[in-house]
């Protein structure tokens, strides 16, 4: 009895979370151009999607920015964690406090503050300004998932490696890196997802010449969304879903990698 109620409750929350997604997937097969009515089943939009250069361009920018910002954030963030670990307690508190700012601050304030920075330095708005903004809000996600792994690690193993004659860099890559890799990976995935889903910060830091999927959708909101966007989102969503299912259904080491 108790378990049934619990299952119903989880089910209702999942419906709340996934109802809009189901709606969008259904819309991607809708032959009618408007969202308001169902015009029959079609695969037309999936074909036209790949011919639509504006959408494919926005997709390329989105994926490129997500990938580059997640990689750069992972490198800077992991290095920062190694450094922070060796700091005195007070310096460490200050560092972690600053790390919290982009996470806790409102996106609109982060976006505006970066926009003002770029304006003050006369930067030309475009791909690089968006990329730098995304790196900025991604680093905290990496630090937050690498830091716990690093502080759990036994420091003696690192010292043992050094005693046995390994150089610090060698010991890092052979002993420390495999230990903290799950943390780096989950930080990377989190950063990638956050970058992909961001609209507000991109909205303030992009120039007129470049669009990501979010900003493209925002400008289309007024004119009416092109159905190709729904099919693109469906493809993106389903490919991630399938990827995650493959990783998680294999009961081997890989499972640990996605876990935090």
């Amino acid at each position: 009895m108790k378990h049934t109620i619990q299952k119903i409750y989880i089910g209702l929350i999942l419906i709340l979370l996934y109802a809009p997604i189901a709606t969008l997937i259904v819309l991607s097969f809708n032959a009618s151009k408007t969202r308001a009515k169902w015009g029959g089943f079609t695969l037309k939009w999936y074909g036209e999607l790949f011919q639509n250069e504006a959408i494919m361009g926005a997709l390329t920018h989105t994926l490129l920015i997500a990938f580059l910002s997640a990689v750069i954030a992972s490198v800077i963030g992991t290095a920062a964690c190694l450094g922070i670990l060796h700091m005195r307690k007070r310096t460490r508190t200050i560092f972690l406090g600053i790390t919290n700012i982009p996470m806790l601050n409102a996106d609109i304030v982060t976006g505006i503050s970066l926009m003002l920075l770029y304006l003050a330095f006369g930067a030309s708005f475009g791909f690089s300004t968006v990329l730098m903004a995304h790196i900025t809000f991604n680093i905290p996600y990496v630090i937050l998932s690498v830091m716990p792994k690093l502080s759990q690690m036994n420091y003696s193993t690192y010292e043992a490696g050094l005693d046995l004659g390994g150089s610090p860099a060698y010991v890092f890559f052979v002993i420390v890196f495999p230990e903290i890799f799950p943390g780096i990976l989950s930080g990377f995935l989190m950063a990638f997802t956050m970058s992909l889903d961001d609209f507000i910060i991109t909205h303030f830091t992009k120039g007129p010449g470049i669009d990501t999927l979010s900003t493209k959708i925002y400008t289309e909101l007024k004119k009416g969304i092109k159905p190709e966007i729904y099919s693109l989102s469906t493809l993106l969503f389903l490919s991630v879903l399938i990827l995650l299912l493959i990783i998680n259904l294999k009961p081997d080491k890989r499972k640990e990698m996605t876990a935090q």
């Binding site: 809009p20 997604i21 997802t193 889903d197 909101l221 729904y230 989102s233 993106l236 879903l241 995650l244």
Partner: peptide, 14 residues
């Protein structure tokens, strides 16, 4: 986290 792979604006629009 999975829903975030469907764009935030589209989810709200839905």
């Amino acid at each position: 986290i999975l829903p975030m792979w469907m764009n935030f604006l589209l989810r709200t629009l839905a």
